[in-house]
Design a protein around this nucleic acid. Structure first.
Lengths: 115, 115
DNA sequence: TTAAAGTATACGGAAAAGCATATATTTATG
DNA sequence: CATAAATATATGCTTTTCCGTATACTTTAA
């Protein structure tokens, strides 16, 4: 992944909101992101697929659900950028209303409540 | 400027190369950038205009030449991102061959040698 | 084995981005 | 004033991005 490609990943609000929530929550399935951002499932799925294809995200299927997380093996130079990107989102107040629907502790990870 | 817009500015190689050189040199005119990157003048001019319009760059005409610099009044949240972006470019070795043609000290700023 | 939930992808269209080329504009200079 | 240099913009085109909708795939559960 080149720096320009990395920035392109972050250059769209939907992708940036997904990444922000994934960083906050650790991992989320598609339906949780769809519910949290109030966007259509194919839209979320397409953006997640593009982020996976460029190496920013990892996915793992668990039964019915596909969980996404930030790829822990990203190149070293991306980490400070990612940190500052999230800090920038935080400091500008963008997406401050985005939040994953609260889950009952004993409901995860088997059954996301959102679906 | 939103974070996503900021990242879009950095998501193109030509723009990233311009920003990298401008950060290194402080300020450069269009013909210096055109020569340093070996790209067409309209292409450079268009990218610089887009970066100026979104607030990332400032321009100032000095006689025949228009000098661009990184806008010193960028919002605070952009600075660490910019720093890390340049560090990323450096560490990945991209654009490592880009350099402004050396100027004789007494030739600047009146007459860029490149033109 | 059928149905339903969760997810991915195909398709078609709209909008934006990016480019090469040509031309206009501004400034300096003879 | 005419010309040349530096820069900006217009034009037409191709490519990419983004989206909504429809549909296919996968897994679970009845």
């Amino acid at each position: 992944m080149t720096p320009a490609q990395f920035f392109k990943c972050l250059s769209d609000d939907t992708r940036l909101r997904c990444i922000t929530l994934l960083h906050k929550e650790g991992r989320l399935c598609v339906c949780e992101l769809t519910a949290a951002l109030a966007l259509s499932q194919p839209k979320i799925s397409r953006h997640l697929a593009s982020l996976r294809q460029c190496g920013l995200l990892q996915d793992s299927r668990e039964g019915q659900w596909v969980y996404y997380r930030i790829n822990p093996e990203l190149p070293a130079w991306t980490w400070p950028l990612l940190q500052n990107a999230l800090a920038a989102v935080e400091s500008t107040g963008h997406f401050k209303n985005d939040q994953v629907r609260l889950q009952q502790m004993d409901a995860r990870p088997d059954t996301p409540l959102c679906c």
